[in-house]
């Protein structure tokens, strides 16, 4: 496998602007989607952990099941929503990075919600009376629990990041794989595979894997550091 590795390395070393643009877009789309999913999913997951309402069990089961939502289906839903003939067509978002972010957010939101719920639920069992005693009601407990569960939550966020950065089905459908505009690492890999440029495809795969590895290493290191520092 010396070939693809050498290709990957020389690709990086060449600083090819098209490649850099693709890497940049991939990171921007995925990281923004993770951020959005967290902004929505962390509070929602925590609320789901603390709230008691009829049908709560069903909601939990649905979110757990949605973790397995096929990316293509998520993409298709967003496509139909954003298409000019769809309800949000006038926003002209189809085939833009924003559409890709929306699709990926939809894809990882269930992961963030479900993992947050499970982490916060466990923590709440331990903290409930103490927090109540200190004067924090359920609502006020949400940020406290999220903050104290941050190391475990990081795992969920990373799982979401992994799913988003690896998927191609959704971004291909809603992004259109437009060169220089919505082409990401994964859609470029798909394209190069279709062109029979397997060496280049594998090289791109290696770069993608390296990026994912680096981000995971950073997150893991941060988690270890926090665990050591904060108990």
């Amino acid at each position: 496998m010396g070939g693809p590795f050498a290709t990957a390395f020389s690709l990086i070393a060449s600083g090819d602007p098209a490649l850099m643009q693709i890497i940049g877009l991939s990171l921007r789309v995925t990281l923004t989607a993770v951020l959005m999913a967290c902004a929505v999913g962390l509070p929602l997951g925590a609320a789901l952990a603390l709230a008691r309402f009829p049908g709560r069990g069903a909601v939990i089961v649905v979110f757990n099941a949605l973790m397995g939502l096929p990316p293509v289906v998520a993409g298709l839903i967003v496509y139909l929503m954003l298409s000019r003939s769809g309800p949000f067509g006038s926003l002209a978002l189809l085939f833009t990075p924003t559409a890709m972010i929306i699709a990926q957010t939809l894809l990882i939101l269930p992961i963030v919600i479900s993992l947050t719920r499970s982490v916060v639920e466990d923590l709440w069992a331990e903290y409930r009376e103490q927090l109540l005693s200190l004067g924090a009601g359920r609502l006020r407990a949400v940020p406290t629990l999220l903050w104290d569960g941050r190391v475990s939550l990081l795992t969920g966020v990373l799982a979401g990041f992994g799913r988003a950065s690896a998927e191609v089905g959704a971004v291909l459908i809603v992004g259109g794989n437009i060169a220089g505009h919505t082409r990401t690492m994964t859609t470029a890999i798909t394209l190069e595979t279709a062109r029979g440029q397997l060496g280049l495809a594998v090289a791109l795969g290696i770069i993608l894997l390296t990026l994912t590895l680096t981000l995971n290493a950073i997150a893991w290191g941060a988690g270890q550091w926090a665990r050591g520092r904060l108990g």
Binding site: E126, Y127, E129, Q130, L131, S133, T144, W147, D148, R150, L230, G231
Partner: peptide, 13 residues
Amino acid sequence: QAMVFQRPVLLRR
């Protein structure tokens, strides 16, 4: 009022 629990919970900070 305040209470010190048999097993107090300290926050991770």
